[in-house]
Amino acid sequence: MLTYLLRRLLFAIPLLFLIAVVSFIIIELPPGDYLTVYVMNLKQSGEAIDEAALQVLRTRYGLDKPLLLRFFIWFRGVLKGDFGYSFMWEKPVSQLIGPRLWYTVLISVLATAFAWVFGFLIGVYSGIHQYSIGDYAFTVLGYIGLATPNFLLALILLWAVYVTFGVSLGGLFSPEYANAPWSWAKFVDLLKHIWLPVIVIGTGSMAGLIRILRANLLDEIEKPYVIAAKARGLPSKELYWKYPLRVAVIPFASTAGWVLPEIVSGAVVTGIVLNLPTVGVILVDALKSQDMYLAGSLVMFLSIFTIIGTVISDILLAWLDPRIRFE
């Protein structure tokens, strides 16, 4: 187990490096470098251009150097916590992303927990009560959940709440708390708002998890080892919990790790529709105005977050499945 753990953690290091490479590619992808875009924007708006400031930025990010060198200059900066400069906000990227990233992580973690817990409970129920009314109801809901993209679900829910109660549920805080310092009341206010994005983001993944657990449970129930356990005299109540569920939960757990990228995707899009203080809005704005250091760093951080998630889920999986542990 320990060797597996170590191997899995070591394997994450090249992945993180690759993420950095991909992020740099994203940064370099639009034609021209950012300074030219920046200068063009300044010229258009008729603002004065501070040549000296430009020169500082140019040398700092090595914009006049060849591509490979630029990457290493940028990568060294990343390791030191310098993620580049946002030309749109006229601030270093590192100052912009902090709280937004944490809210994104918070919402994603909660949505994942929501998807896991309810996906598990409903999946077990549907698997054991195959073809019951509840099973059919959840199957229908699951199909619709899978077919409705997050942002549409968010829009439809917002609209329904707005039309019936006349309140707009967007955002994470009521206006009076948005810029207030942390207090108990602000925390309660957060709880009042956060459930909507959590449900919206979690539902799609939950639907997928239900299907996987249900299908696997149904497969496992017919396996010889279940019959063999029954033939030993194990009561059927214990039988379900102890044997097929224990095995069916393995593919569930392995998929559950991979819902994280999906959930982060959902958090980005939903954040825009629900007007949350997450990375969604600034990512879209950054991409639209080609503020690439900001956009690239955001993609990098979101990817790092999902990589950490999948590592955790792989470790969980090894703990659940001896076949992986002893490979």
Partner: peptide, 22 residues
Amino acid sequence: RNIRGKDIAMIFQEPAACFAPV
């Protein structure tokens, strides 16, 4: 249940599939 496994026991065709892998 008391008879099953104690008074009448059974062995099966595919031993590998009859032990749960976990």
